[in-house]
Design a protein around this nucleic acid. Structure first.
Length: 114
DNA sequence: AATGTGACATACC
DNA sequence: TGGTATGCCACAT
């Protein structure tokens, strides 16, 4: 209907919306978001959205989004490679060797929580 | 309009 | 058991 308040149904907006809903101290995966958006095939696009988050004024906790292995693959895209891990640890997430400890425990799945 | 790219995921060897 | 290859789909150029 009205697209006045609808920024666009771009995949990005949906991805950002979910990422911003990630509770502090929790993490999620690209595949989980993509799956929540019924586009699990487009997991790459989810990551691509994160790349675009740099241009947005919205604060996207991209550091809470990791790959399926719980590995901080996107750390290199932050200001510094240490930024991502630092932010996670600051929120209580234990990261070791660029990998999240007890990843499955703190994994937050929007498809289940929402 | 077409080609290239990528912060993933899965399959195969 | 781990690296290589391909698929995937939306955005950028």
């Amino acid at each position: 209907m009205n697209d006045f308040f609808t920024p666009k149904e771009d995949f990005f907006e949906q991805v950002f919306a979910v990422v911003k809903l990630i509770p502090k101290g929790r993490v999620t995966t690209y595949g989980a978001i993509a799956e929540y958006l019924v586009a699990k095939k487009s997991a790459r696009v989810v990551g691509y959205a994160m790349n675009a988050s740099h241009s947005l004024l919205d604060k996207i906790p991209a550091h809470r989004v990791v790959n399926r292995n719980g590995l901080l693959t996107g750390k290199m895209h932050f200001a510094t490679p240490d930024t991502m891990q630092n932010l996670l640890e600051m929120e209580g997430v234990v990261v070791e060797n660029n990998q999240i400890v007890d990843f499955k425990k703190i994994l937050w799945l929007p498809i289940e929580e929402l």
